[in-house]
Design a protein around this nucleic acid. Structure first.
Length: 545
RNA sequence: GCGCCCGUAGCUCAGUCAGGAGAGAGCAGCGGACUUCUAUUCCGCCGGUCGCAGGUUCGAAUCCUGCCGGGCGCACCA
């Protein structure tokens, strides 16, 4: 820059939207116009004159008001194809330097185990899982974790509900109801006998000990069912963390004691408050109620501390990170959770909470009412069964977290381009078919090293190569932004460029075997890229459709 | 009332973090393309005051302020 007589500045290369503008571009000259007091195009010219152009850049041009565009050479793309073909899998993955590699605890779903998951939870399942996969692809270590609220009032209440249903007695508005409660009652009766629901000399209602005993079993049964529901969606966790263990081990008392000795609490009206309002929260929050029982928030604090210690112990160079994916109905917790983290001495920025907007379940444009009453609850597994895991996952993943998702059963079950997942999968199946056909016909594709990949100069070939080359960057960006839709949209772009290539460029051509071989290896590379993108989204890449 | 999110083509949404080249995609509508590697595909046309009004900037869908619509949340609940 100095040589060109210009102020120092970050070139900030970016990818132009229009193919005519090359693979890379910089707006440097435009931004320097003011400080350098010169016309942007003149500045651009001076930059270009002093530029050290790498081998892989075929052409540099100044365009428009002062953009500098770079075009990559054919040999760059030839190397790209060889690289993609050479790696067995994981094109698109990257690695971070050891000192930046984080251990990320990704907590998602964590719905209360007092009922089966509904459709909305599917969004958090698919998204949390895919973000975890993206973080892994970006080179981080990940723990997928589910926090099980298996302690406290709701367990007692759930147990009481099961007992009452088992006995055929009446429920009140405070109880859980619905077919699944009866199912649990039946299952528990089968496993433990009807005596499980009996009280000793209790005249009315359910004895606390009975409610607690049944509640514990019922919650575990429900948790197991939730685990199964998530597995159906292709989501498997590393850790199912039990809240009860925090109560049993004394971790909650220890945590409250620590917060107190660090001066973050005070007593008022017999209750213990945490000074969260000193750390950005609207008001202080109760840790221990005036009757001595800890709040759920106290358990959250203990859990936060436990998780932080565990993630830190992994000892990665980039340190630990606690990632929470929460629904918009929980965004009220964000401030107090972050405040708690500060009080616990967790470095700022290490607890990251992302809020996702909610899901509307529709059928033919009409809202599906999800009443608590028996029979009207639409569970996640029912939906997955009806529409399939690939469509369900992809539908959630291709939309940003900030957008409310309409999940319309009538639309989503249609196998048309209203479900773009088929478009991407079809591209993969099409390439697979092409390769099968080539083999059947005894097509001599040779090796990728022998192929003359410089023959790939058709516009459709070039577009496909461009999309292919961008995959690693798109993955890295999607991981950085925790934005699954980035990857989904790029997979669609990749599929689109392949479909156009397929239409315009025949691979198994007569008379030009050299070109055919080059195209064959391009198709192989494209299939690998599609398979890798779909793998990160945990969507199947079918060989046939 | 306060806080968070959204408002972009008839519909569903990308793009907003980090301001740049005539604002993109799919669906719907209209018109084309298979005797040849999968037509769940491809090509073309139609379609937009980027909610409204100000401001910052050489340049705003993008940043700031204020409005207007919609969703969600504001417990010694769980």
């Amino acid at each position: 820059m100095a040589a060109a007589g210009l102020p120092d500045a970050d070139p900030e290369l970016e990818r132009p939207r229009q193919p005519e503008h090359g693979e890379w571009a910089t707006t440097l000259a435009l931004r320097l116009a003011k400080p350098a007091k010169a016309a942007p195009r003149d500045i651009a010219q001076r930059i270009v004159d002093h530029l050290d152009v790498p081998e892989q850049v075929a052409e540099v041009e100044i365009a428009g008001p002062g953009f500098v565009n770079f075009r990559l050479s054919a040999s760059y793309y030839a190397d790209l194809i060889r690289e993609v073909v050479a790696r067995e899998e994981g094109f698109g993955r990257s690695s971070v330097p050891e000192e930046e590699r984080e251990h990320v605890n990704v907590e998602f779903v964590s719905a209360n185990p007092t009922g089966p998951l509904h459709v909305g939870a599917g969004r958090w399942a698919a998204t949390g899982d895919a973000i975890a996969a993206l973080l892994e692809a970006a080179g981080h270590e990940v723990t997928r974790e589910y926090y099980v609220n298996d302690a406290g009032e709701q367990v007692r209440r759930f147990g009481e509900s099961v007992v009452l249903v088992a006995r055929g007695e009446e429920l009140t508005d405070d109880h859980y109801r619905g077919g699944y409660v009866a199912e649990i009652a039946d299952a528990l009766r089968a496993a433990h006998g009807a005596d499980l629901f009996a009280d000793d000399g209790q005249a009315q209602g359910v004895a606390p000990a009975t409610a607690a005993r049944v509640g514990e079993l019922a919650v575990e049964a429900m948790r197991a069912r939730i685990e199964g529901q998530l597995h159906e969606l292709g989501v498997d966790y590393d850790v199912w963390f039990s809240e009860r263990t925090l109560h049993d081990s004394g971790a909650i008392e220890t945590t409250v004691a620590q917060l107190t000795s660090d001066g973050h609490t005070y007593a008022d009206d017999g209750a213990t408050f945490l000074r969260t309002s000193d750390h950005g929260d609207d008001k202080d929050r109760v840790l221990v109620r005036s009757d001595g029982r800890p709040t759920y928030f106290a358990a959250d604090c203990a859990y936060l501390r436990e998780k932080w210690d565990r993630a830190s112990a992994a000892g990665t160079g980039g340190g630990a990170r606690l990632f929470y994916l929460l629904g918009a109905d929980h965004h009220g917790y964000v401030a107090r959770l972050l405040a708690a983290a500060e009080c616990l001495g967790i470095p700022s920025g290490r607890v990251e909470i992302r809020i996702g907007q909610l899901v509307n379940l529709l059928r033919g444009g009409e809202p599906v009412r999800m009443s608590k009453r028996a029979g009207e609850l639409i569970t996640l597994d029912e939906v997955v069964e009806e529409v399939g895991t690939d469509v369900t996952r992809y539908h959630f993943l291709r939309q940003g977290l900030d957008t409310t998702v309409d999940f319309d059963l009538a639309v989503v079950t249609r196998q048309s381009m209203e479900n773009p997942v088929y478009y991407v999968q079809y591209a993969h199946a099409r390439i697979s078919s092409l390769i099968r056909t080539a083999d059947e016909r005894g097509f001599d594709h040779g090796t990728v090293e022998e192929a003359n990949l410089l023959r790939l100069d058709h516009p459709a070939e070039h577009e496909l190569l461009r999309a292919l080359a961008r995959l690693p960057l798109e993955v890295a960006e999607a991981a950085e932004l925790r934005a699954t839709q980035r990857l989904a949209r790029h997979a669609e772009e990749l599929a689109g460029t392949f479909h156009r290539f397929y239409t315009e460029c025949r691979v198994l051509v007569d008379g030009d075997e050299e070109l055919g071989r080059a195209r064959y290896w391009l198709a192989v590379a494209a299939r690998r890229a599609l398979a890798d993108a779909l793998a990160l989204l945990r969507v199947r890449a079918p060989e046939r459709m």
